[in-house]
């Protein structure tokens, strides 16, 4: 029967197709939850400098992790690049990363921004801080995260959805600082103060504050930077909370070498390169984040926001407590 032969031919073709790409040696493959327009310029530069080709796909962090897991030992991913320490912690917890011993990385990246077990490394920092409407709020009125739950903010607070991992990590960090019970009270008081249902993005939070739907909100710094760059006239400003206490909550984007990486050495090289001041400047610059390497230059807009004291709890705690944080937010009615 001809069908049989055709089937066999197809099989052979598939296997050959599968074999060929994996034989390209001088490349490194990245699965990235960081958006394409943020990573492509860097990778292009890297290829130009080293000749190593960087192939990547982008996607949702959870989906990429699931994909690496499902692909198991045959995965093509050498590096998983993702945002939020919570995701990185989970990837490590699921055994997707292998420990990497690199003096360069240890030197370039502060210890609270990388995995104590050397499985992943922060590559950029974003602060999750308070933004307010400058027409309606004066900075003196603001103080801490928990203060946003005080009665004076009733009907004035705007939040993004609790489904976003940034808020989950923030809540997790609050749990580390304040314990479960107190944190639940804080979240409850936030929900109580909401002026409208939570939004699906930080940008919308900011736009709504600017439009006066509410007066204060919690956002990642780079969203503020992006929006202000586009619409400089908006009555918005950042506030660094908790400067007398533990400091501003920071989160990272970061990466690790996958357990079954085919190009382990090259992957490590890429990570190390990404932590160098030159790369760091681009990495942070492109998204108006803070670099992890202290020698890297700040984006001029980012610089204009001033410096702040950051919370030095290791960001991995956010991952550990993420599920706990979600449960807590669900209980508190934070959608």
């Amino acid at each position: 029967m001809t069908g049989k032969y055709i089937a066999m031919l197809i099989m052979v073709a598939i296997v050959t197709l599968g074999v060929i790409p994996s034989t390209f040696a001088d490349e490194v493959v990245v699965y990235s939850a960081r958006k394409e327009h943020l990573i492509k310029p860097l990778f292009d530069l890297y290829t130009k400098e080293t000749g190593t080709k960087v192939r990547y796909i982008t996607g949702n962090a959870g989906a990429l992790m699931q994909r690496i897991k499902a692909e198991g030992s045959r995965t093509r991913a050498d590096i998983l690049l993702t945002v939020d320490a919570g995701n990185l912690w989970h990837a490590a917890d699921e055994g997707l990363f292998q420990p990497v011993k690199s003096r360069v990385l240890e030197k370039n990246i502060p210890s609270h921004l990388r995995d104590p077990g050397n499985r992943w490394f922060g590559l950029s920092v974003r602060a999750r801080t308070i933004a307010y409407n400058t027409d309606r709020v004066s900075p003196e009125e603001l103080s801490t995260y928990e203060d946003l739950g005080s009665p004076k903010w009733k009907g004035r607070l705007i939040l993004r959805t609790s489904k976003k991992v940034y808020n989950q990590s923030l809540t997790a960090m609050l749990i580390v600082e304040h314990g479960l019970e107190k944190t639940e009270d804080i979240i409850r008081s936030w929900v109580h103060n909401l002026s409208t249902e939570p939004f699906s993005s930080d940008t919308k939070v900011l736009e709504s504050i600017a439009a006066g739907q509410g007066d204060v909100g919690i956002i990642n710094t780079y969203y503020f930077g992006r929006l202000m760059k586009k619409k400089p006239g908006l009555p918005l400003a950042l506030f660094w909370p908790d400067q007398d206490g533990n400091g501003v909550h920071v989160n990272i984007s970061g990466a690790g070498v996958t357990t079954h990486a085919r190009h382990r050495g090259k992957a490590m090289k890429l990570l190390e390169w990404l932590s160098t001041p030159a790369a760091q400047t681009i990495f942070a610059d492109s998204n108006m984040e803070y670099p992890v390497h202290s020698d890297a230059k700040l984006h001029s807009i980012v610089k204009s926001w001033g410096s702040f004291r950051e919370n030095l709890i290791n960001v991995s705690r956010g991952g550990e407590l993420q599920a706990e944080a979600i449960r807590l937010m669900d209980r508190a009615g934070y959608r």
Partner: peptide
């Protein structure tokens, strides 16, 4: 030792 055959296709 082939890489993923069907996956990622």
């Amino acid at each position: 030792e082939p890489g993923p055959v069907l996956q990622g296709t």
